[in-house]
Design a protein around this nucleic acid. Structure first.
Lengths: 238, 238
DNA sequence: ACAATTCACTTGTATATACAAGTAATTCAC
DNA sequence: GTGAATTACTTGTATATACAAGTGAATTGT
């Protein structure tokens, strides 16, 4: 089965780049030039260029032309999942203990992250997540501290986060449009070491995550896991 | 400035979905129906539908129609960049000190990761990356330990990784087709604490990264950064 | 020598039209 | 009532054409 013409053009361009004939930042033939070379319409050539642009291989600028994108830093993507799904995906059992659900006054950091005025009352939940191995051994795997915008999720406080993760609940109440993450390594300190049943000097992985819906910032979550019990993994094909 | 017609159609569709009027799996008006409704050409309506399909909002099937995609669980992506680019992107200066470039015998872990027989000789580089602030203050930000498949990158040992990052070099020599990551938090320990100029109990962010080219596993890298000096950040729009 | 203008190219958006290929509902023959 | 054929829709690919908007080189004016 003969491939579509725009696909043939895409393959031609990729082969030129992968073989080294066209190096990064070099100019790619224009839509018109490719149209003549492949005996197709400009719109067909354009579709090939546009799809390569969307996948990051090319960069286009109106008036200036099309260029091979910089051979960036090998980059890749990492998917951060709902903690319950992760645990279940390795055939272990997830459970959660709701430590606290309440209204708190937003301190400066929380106010900035939730985009509200400082001292505004916001919703706060604290949940300890556990993983249970098939042997029956159970250990805390993540402390979830989450601040939520009360205007966007008015019924947050009456949920039971031992039964459903906050993540799942928020997904259904305020469809996600945007998210940011920061991932860093911290030492547990006294408070975390008690909650997570670890040594105070133990390294922990901490993810700070903000999520938006179309109406604004929905939540700001701090997810902390013992470094020896939790890692993030990702896989990407190009 | 008036938005393009295809963008108006995209916004209309997204608003219908976000407001709950169109729930997941429901059928979306056809290209022709949207073309009539918005008084545009079918190709303009089609472009709106096609872009929403590419971003995951819609699902299309030739002959059957266009449907709202399933509302998946919140997930997001994180981009891991070349360390030099990262430092430069915050207007600081990157520099690197090549500690070692040599041939080593692959131990069990390395052999598994590089997909070679244990005790096979592989290439190994060790580089310390520094960040220099505008004030002139400089500190180590990452230790890079990297094992490389000698068959795929025969000239690896003669490079100078104080001048070019291993990442950039590998990008040019063996085009990336696949990558996996594992991110975890560890305590530095004695060896790392000396190299990174930190306390032995300091938490560190450690990324283990394998990369593939079309011919197989190219490299296995261990990237270790002090937790108080380095974090990963990411941003995603849906 | 330098600034402004013009020109020739580029990409961006849009329309009309045509045919290919797939799906699902309707109709017809038995 | 059932299966095959037909019909009417759908999305997929492609072309020609037109105008808008941006870029950069060449030309012109001072």
């Amino acid at each position: 089965m003969k491939p579509a013409k725009f696909i043939i053009i895409k393959q031609y361009i990729c082969q030129k780049i992968e073989s080294g004939q066209w190096s990064q930042h070099s100019k790619v033939p224009s839509e018109n030039e490719l149209a003549m070379q492949f005996n197709v319409s400009r719109m067909t050539a354009r579709r090939a260029l546009q799809e390569l642009t969307e996948q990051g291989t090319l960069v286009r600028s109106q008036g200036a032309g099309t260029f091979v994108a910089s051979f960036k830093s090998q980059s890749s993507v990492l998917e951060i999942k709902n903690i319950a799904d992760e645990v279940q995906s390795r055939n272990h059992q997830h459970s959660a203990k709701q430590l606290s659900v309440k209204t708190v006054k937003a301190n400066e950091e929380v106010a900035i992250q939730l985009n509200v005025t400082e001292n505004t009352e916001v919703y706060y939940s604290e949940v300890l997540h556990f993983e249970t191995l098939q042997s029956g051994e159970q250990f805390p795997i993540q402390l979830e501290q989450r601040y939520v915008n009360p205007n966007l999720v008015p019924n947050y406080l009456i949920q039971n986060f031992s039964k459903i993760t906050a993540h799942e609940y928020l997904s259904s109440e305020a469809p996600l449009t945007e998210a940011t993450h920061e991932i860093e390594a911290i030492n547990a300190g006294e408070q975390l070491s008690q909650l997570l049943a670890i040594n105070g000097q133990q390294a922990c992985l901490q993810i700070k995550r903000r999520t938006w819906s179309s109406q604004g910032v929905v939540s700001f979550a701090i997810l902390t896991s013992p470094g020896d019990k939790y890692r993030l993994g990702g896989h990407l094909t190009f």
